[in-house]
Design a binder for these strands. Structure first.
Lengths: 99, 99
DNA sequence: ACCGCATATGCGGTCAAGCGCATTTGCAGT
DNA sequence: ACTGCAAATGCGCTTGACCGCATATGCGGT
């Protein structure tokens, strides 16, 4: 159960959920981009990304002065399914509001 | 986003996740049954059920001296999908361990 | 009316999560 | 070597989640 709890805890925070949502396009994003898009301070963004990395949701890579984060391609399918369901609920809410 | 965050927070707690899992059989369960099955104190169980009720995951019903909780049948599908993905990951982990 | 089981709740304590600020570290250009 | 941007981290603080204990409330049965 612990794995699921860790994942849920990681997602149950606004900054982290926003980051996961952005990273779920499959592309790489540096911390500076994420913090600007989401609108949070640098240390805050950095720490939250660490949490996401620790639960295995994302991967990071040094690229010169930047650290590029992206969705972890090796994330177990059952966990990916959870994240996708969450993102779908976010997008769905948006769509229904617009309709 | 708030709705999803509330749901995730509600699920990201051991006692509540265990309760949701039990209630997801669609049947009714009283607090006394839940607390015994899960193995927690009465006040603890009661309070966690309140949280689950507040986020709309479960419904309660007075039946004589008991309060019967069950899965909320009116839970929006996108949220139900999240919960089902979580439960599937729990069951899946179990099955794979046994295999 | 009283008792007893089931459930909820008031209260106070503990602990970890999250935060900002300041500093450090990593890296590239000059 | 020095400067500057990107990212991480040490530190101390605040706040809210969760807990147990005790008590209140709801509801039959006697």
């Amino acid at each position: 159960m612990q794995v699921a709890l860790d994942l849920l805890s990681a997602l149950a925070e606004p900054t982290r959920l926003a980051a996961v949502r952005l990273l779920w396009d499959g592309r790489e994003h540096c911390v500076c981009e994420l913090m600007e898009t989401i609108g949070v301070t640098q240390s805050r963004m950095s720490r939250h990304m660490l949490v996401l990395k620790q639960v295995g949701v994302v991967t990071d890579r040094r690229d010169a002065q930047w650290v590029r984060y992206r969705r972890n391609p090796d994330l177990p399918p059952e966990q990916a399914a959870i994240i996708e369901a969450v993102i779908a609920s976010l997008d769905g809410a948006q769509g229904r509001r617009a309709a």
